[in-house]
Amino acid sequence: MEKKITGKAYVLGDNIDTDQIIPAEHLVYSTSDPEELKKYGHYALSSVPADGAGLPNGFTPFIIGDNYKSDYKIIIGGSNFGSGSSREHAPLALQVAGVKVVIAESYARIFYRNSVDGGFLVPYVSKEKLNDKIKTGDIIEVDLESNKIKNLSNDSSYQLFSLGDVFEIVEAGGLFEYARTSGMI
């Protein structure tokens, strides 16, 4: 696991549900075919209402044109990120688009589990509301050892909650890797 992740932030509001992250009509593509997998990246966050897409200004597309990779590596969310359906395609779509870390005030249970157990991305919980402090496009450095993030665009920094119990699973790269390392399977 990388110790530090640096990238551009994409900022979203509260209650970003999995229908906004990857609309249900796109759940038909194969997750094992490398070409079809790109569709998940292409449609990632495609149902977020335009005025909430890339705060504070909105109207900033996460994916440009026909791409499946986004310019943004770090998502800054609000409360209840990933609510709604159990589709693991949600953290998968963000991963395919190139997202490494999500930082939110809170998560819906299944999205959080899926992110960790599938090894798709690191779901950090922030100690304070950040989606009104960080702007879309700011360059953020996430330190996974000290659980801190630094906004390199204005030199402010914020503390995150440690990953706690699930750190070992995140570090192993997912539930299966963890289970193999610990001799469970």
């Binding site: 997750t31 693991e88 299944i110 899926n114 299966f176 289970a179 399977i185």
Partner: peptide, 12 residues
């Protein structure tokens, strides 16, 4: 649960 958790259950 998601697919990874379900796959884990399926095997264990």
């Amino acid at each position: 649960v998601g697919n990874t958790d379900a796959a884990f259950i399926l095997g264990t």
